[in-house]
Design a protein around this nucleic acid. Structure first.
Lengths: 204, 204
DNA sequence: GTCCGTCCCTGACATTTGTCATGCCCGGTG
DNA sequence: CACCGGGCATGACAAATGTCAGGGACGGAC
């Protein structure tokens, strides 16, 4: 005998969410009990409906899937989290696993496969997409120190050094130093390319 | 009496494409005759099946929705194009309309609404999402000259000026000049922020 | 035809950014 | 304890970037 799995669906794209809800409803052991379009909404819905499995998009307005997962971990430990994403960055996978996420797959999987995976994580097992896992392993850990990452983040929008220095409460020379060492660690020509690379790998 | 509308579905995310195909099939006047995951594939499928309406994702590997639309316009003038997108940048809408696209909507619409819109464009009418249209109008036209845009594009990945100069066959001083004027037109502090802004508005 | 505005292009100069040598503090090792 | 090694922080110098004034080409207005 199979019990019914109560599912929460969170994705900012109505089109996908609705379509997915319809498709998952075709599986007679899955029941979509709630939908959400933003991070905070997902959290509220989870509190209200206490689903067995939460399917979260990685990028949502308000709070991303990993942040929601972190909150759920403490508030609803019984609720398993499965993350789906369009652009899989290595660092995100690592953060997701650290947040107690049970599954991590790209949106290129079929709905059929997603249904299977919902059952898999509900049964207490884990699953991460092999390709994303390989990427994460080959990309490895972030080589950046805490300050380097912090400064790089402040530099992300192309702000001049003076502004970064003020925001980080550091001397300009120090900021330049961190940016420079971050860039060389990442193999980038300059800080802007470094920002791009760090973003791609999910390290900022 | 309503005739059957033959639809081509192109999106790189299996999950969405499959779900969408299933949902649109519920409408008895819509028939999904082909699916594609990349730009070139969409083009090939369109040639093979000559659909009435092509529903294209804006961002796909190989060639984006607008490029595909441009090719379709000459090869299959009878095929109406409807573009769906997750992140609507003002400039994209403009380029899309210039390419003869009949509809332009964000992925936040419901499947029900999408089905209606497929009928709308099939009937020969146009439809663009009001909010996206408002954004496009308020953002206005690109204030950048041809050269400014070209140089800005070369600068997009954070390359040093010397490299940009070589790629564009210009003196370094000239390149700096274009970058500077582009930045000031966009109200950016420096060229990197300028690149970011131009991207957001879809001007590069 | 001549004027005016705009785009395209350039080199010289000022400013910002990247690199280097250096010093402090802290935790782990012998 | 004395000695690393690594992260944190700084200022001085070299290199890249941004700014400026100006010149040539072209098209539309008068």
């Amino acid at each position: 005998m199979t019990t019914t799995v109560r599912v929460l669906l969170a994705d900012d794209e109505h089109l996908i969410r609705g379509a997915l809800a319809a498709l998952l409803s075709l599986e007679d052991d899955l029941l979509v009990v709630a939908e959400a379009a933003t991070g905070p909404e997902a959290l509220a819905m989870a509190r209200a409906h206490a689903p067995d499995v939460a399917v979260l998009d990685l990028q949502m307005p308000g709070a991303d899937g990993v942040k929601v997962a972190t909150s759920l971990r403490t508030e609803l430990p019984a609720c398993k989290v499965l993350i789906v994403t369009s652009h899989g960055r290595p660092g995100h996978l690592k953060r997701a696993l650290a947040a107690g996420v049970r599954g991590f797959v790209p949106k290129t999987v079929s709905a059929q496969r997603l249904a299977e995976l919902i059952r898999t994580v509900h049964a207490g097992n884990r699953y991460v997409d092999p390709e994303l896992a390989a990427d994460a392993i080959s990309a490895g850990d972030s080589p950046l120190t805490a300050r380097e990452a912090e400064v790089l983040e402040h530099a992300a929008d192309g702000a001049p050094v003076a502004e970064i220095a003020e925001r980080a409460a550091l001397a300009e020379g120090t900021v330049r130093n961190y940016l420079s060492s971050a860039a060389s660690k990442l193999g980038a020509e300059n800080r802007h390319a470094a920002v791009r690379l760090a973003r791609e790998r999910g390290w900022v």
